[in-house]
């Protein structure tokens, strides 16, 4: 049996008040777990609860010791006007440019505010996706991506990543169906 990286038991999370859960699941190396559910079900909140980014009101999260987690959040800081290149952005998370789609590789030394919205989103996603990590948390990764970007992401995820576990929150059911090895439905509280 594959190694369990993380186990959530009766997890209830929120901010001032609980907004998500209870939820039970575990994540093993090599697995791509999808969290699906309606808007407002608290899927993003549950992702943050896995590393202590929100208040856990009930249940618990157990993780293997020494795990590195990479979290791609749904909202990103506004990068307009900041003289930062794609290569510098990737270096922040320690991500590698190797494997980037060709339509981004030749723009790595451009300022980010010269990229299209889709290119910028893919680069931000790539920075978290390929950072050194045991667990990769992706929150609505296909948002703002064009079809080519979604296809590239799905193909990349579909390749073997036996030493990592992924959790994907997405309203894009086609992407969830295409890449996830297991899907958990998250209902509103």
């Amino acid at each position: 049996m594959e190694e369990v990286l993380l186990r959530a038991t009766g997890l209830v999370a929120g901010y001032d008040l609980p907004v998500a859960g209870p939820l039970d699941f575990d994540l093993r190396r090599g697995e791509i777990l999808g969290l699906a559910g309606p808007n407002g079900a608290g899927k993003s909140t549950l992702l943050k609860a896995l590393w202590g980014g929100v208040t856990v009101f009930g249940g618990q999260v157990e993780k293997a010791t020494g795990l590195a987690i990479s979290h791609q959040a749904q909202g990103f800081a506004d990068l307009r006007g900041v003289p930062l290149t794609g290569r510098e952005l990737l270096a922040l998370t320690g991500a590698s440019p190797a494997g980037l789609p060709p339509w981004l590789l030749d723009r790595l030394d451009w300022r980010l505010d010269r990229l299209s919205g889709g290119q910028l989103q893919f680069l931000r996603l790539w920075a978290c996706l390929t950072a050194q990590a045991d667990i990769v948390l992706l929150d609505e990764p296909s948002n703002n991506l064009d079809r080519a970007g979604v296809d590239y992401l799905a193909d990349w995820l579909a390749r073997s990543h036996a030493d990592q576990g992924f959790i994907i929150v997405s309203h894009d059911l086609a992407l969830i169906d295409r890449v996830c090895t297991r899907v958990i439905q998250v209902g509103a509280m």
Partner: peptide, 18 residues
Amino acid sequence: NRSLLLARFFPEFHQARG
């Protein structure tokens, strides 16, 4: 430098790393 940039552009990534 890196920490200030990370905290600005990838706050969740930064925190998730502990």
